[in-house]
């Protein structure tokens, strides 16, 4: 078991590229080695050691590595990018692209996450106790497949475009989401506990379940009647009918 604790040495005002903060990269490394890892701050090349205090206890493979991020990481992007195993615990907020392209392991955030969390994620788990911003589990610009596998859970709310271009996996938002969750969906499942608006346009596959109120429906869904899912009765829609889509939308 290896535990690595990072704390910012001072307030970070300019965003930092934190793609080296991942269990795969930290595992088996000493404090000194982690200190030397590159972390760009704006257009300045710097190191993790210069920005953060690093404490390492024990040593182990990625799957047995725990990273604890204490303090304010709200300007640190790309934490856990491409991670395949291990655990990251974040006590505060983080910047964009948390867990992007990760394929395994678990990231748990006590605070809020900025946009693109879980972008193009393939596997593993992301638990966000606060709120998520835009494009949760979506595909980055131009990408035809967003989230492909794994699970994202948000205890709070999420903003617009949750799971855009999603191809697989599961996103659960306990609170409300902004407009167009599941836009251009091609697979996977999105469960929204609260309210949303205009879910699922351009959907070709996949499932969206809305337990709250849908403020506005896109006129591209066909009502198929009532259906009981997990003991709850929903109105079942299919669409997007314009693109001959086979997406499923369940609204309470």
């Amino acid at each position: 078991m290896q535990t690595v604790t990072l704390k910012p040495k001072k307030e970070i005002k300019i965003s930092v590229e934190g793609e080296n903060i991942s269990a795969d990269i930290f595992s088996g490394k000493t404090e000194k080695e982690i200190h030397a890892l590159v972390a760009w701050m704006g257009n300045q090349k710097t190191t993790i050691g210069e920005l953060f205090s690093v404490k390492v206890e024990g040593s182990g493979p990625a799957a047995d590595t725990k990273i604890i991020l204490e303090g304010d990481f709200s300007r640190v992007k790309r934490i856990g990018e491409g991670m395949t195993a291990g655990l990251i615990l974040i006590t505060g907020n983080v910047d964009m692209h948390l867990g992007a392209k990760m394929s395994g392991g678990k990231i748990s955030v006590k605070g809020n996450v900025d946009s693109w969390a879980g972008r193009e994620m393939k596997g593993g788990e992301l638990i966000i106790e606060g709120n998520a911003a835009y494009y949760l589990g979506a595909g980055y610009r131009g990408e035809s497949c967003g989230m492909r596998g794994g699970k994202i859970t948000v205890m709070g709310n999420a903003l617009d475009f949750v799971g855009e271009h999603m191809c697989g996996g599961e996103i659960i938002v306990k609170g409300n989401t902004g407009i167009l969750p599941g836009l251009s969906n091609n697979g996977g499942k999105i469960v929204i506990g609260g309210n949303t608006s205009r879910p699922g346009s351009e959907m070709s596959k996949g499932t969206i379940i809305v337990n709250g109120k849908v403020e506005e429906m896109m006129p591209v869904f066909k009502l198929e009647g009532d259906e009981i899912v997990d003991g709850v009765t929903y109105k079942k829609y299919t669409g997007d009918v314009i693109g001959n889509g086979k997406g499923l939308l369940y609204v309470k």
Binding site: G139, Y140, R141, G142
Partner: peptide
């Protein structure tokens, strides 16, 4: 222009 994902 239409393939920013390719530029990545």
């Amino acid at each position: 222009m239409m393939r920013p994902e390719d530029s990545r």
